[in-house]
């Protein structure tokens, strides 16, 4: 009897998504009626966290297909302004989203969903004994994000606060946070100034050096749904999920701080 009931629910769920309200015990499903596919344009530093989040989102909203477009927040702004299809925009700063808000391209007020800070990534074992931003002058090549990209702007602020001037001829610019730490992970850059979450995600292929509070920067991550979206319901469902306790604890697991 019980087994037949489950089969019925599964069948019903397969045919009618509205019937998801008839939940069976193991499902945590909220009454998800969102369906279809959405594109989430997200800051590169969110890559790992959002991929994990997507798996959890899927179990709550099995009918929504998520597509990610990761890149630097500033590049994503240009893409969206140029008409690239996107339903949700998650940026590593607030000003990128504000830019789109100013041109009326986002619905509602953007929400802050996570915080991040900067760290120095060095080669495993820290062969150059870099212990602070000042120590970066010992490096032959320091990887920083491009000047227009949020992590590049943050790094410039931190370096300025520490009164460190790195000659541009020692600085290799990554197109986004992931590319920047990649120069240390895969390449021969001696150090990179990137998000703490990137350093954490890189695991043992780098060593981390903390930047003291006085010099560090708090990156505020903002998220908004886009006016051009053809699937506002699913877009909102994703944003709600990011703000939910499940979404937030996933972000924390990847090293982000709560807003």
């Amino acid at each position: 009897m019980l087994r037949r009931g489950v089969v019925c629910v599964v069948l019903a769920g397969g045919v009618l998504s509205a019937n998801a309200t008839i939940t069976h015990a193991s499902s945590r499903a909220t009454s998800s009626t969102a369906q279809g596919s959405i594109t989430v344009s997200a800051a590169a530093s969110l890559t790992d966290a959002f991929r994990a989040l997507a798996r959890e989102f899927r179990s709550e909203h099995p009918k929504v297909r998520l597509r990610f477009n990761f890149g630097s927040s500033s590049a994503l702004v240009s893409q969206i302004q140029a008409g690239a299809p996107a339903d949700v925009f998650a940026a590593a700063d607030t000003s990128s989203v504000d830019k789109l808000a100013a041109s009326g391209q986002v619905n509602k007020t953007p929400r802050i969903f996570a915080r991040n800070s900067l760290q120095i990534a060095v080669k495993p074992g820290n062969p150059l004994k870099i212990t602070s931003l000042v120590g970066l002058s010992k490096a032959r090549v320091v990887a920083l994000c491009a000047k227009t990209v949020p992590c590049g702007v943050y790094a410039a602020t931190a370096l300025q606060r520490a009164a460190v001037v790195l000659p541009e001829s020692n600085v290799s610019r990554g197109v986004d946070a992931k590319a920047t730490i990649g120069a240390v992970v895969n390449g021969d850059a001696d150090a990179a100034v990137v998000y703490a979450t990137d350093v954490r995600a890189a695991g043992r292929s780098v060593a981390s050096v903390t930047i003291p509070k006085a010099h560090n920067v708090t990156a505020m991550y903002a998220i908004a749904s886009l006016r051009e979206s053809k699937n506002a319901k699913a877009a909102q469902a994703f944003i709600d999920f990011v703000m939910s306790s499940v979404g937030q604890s996933t972000l924390v697991r990847f090293g982000f701080a709560r807003p």
Partner: peptide
């Protein structure tokens, strides 16, 4: 180039 030589203004850009 960007993978192997990096993106250093005035040096490899």
């Amino acid at each position: 180039t960007i993978t192997f030589a990096g993106n250093i203004e005035g040096r490899t850009q």
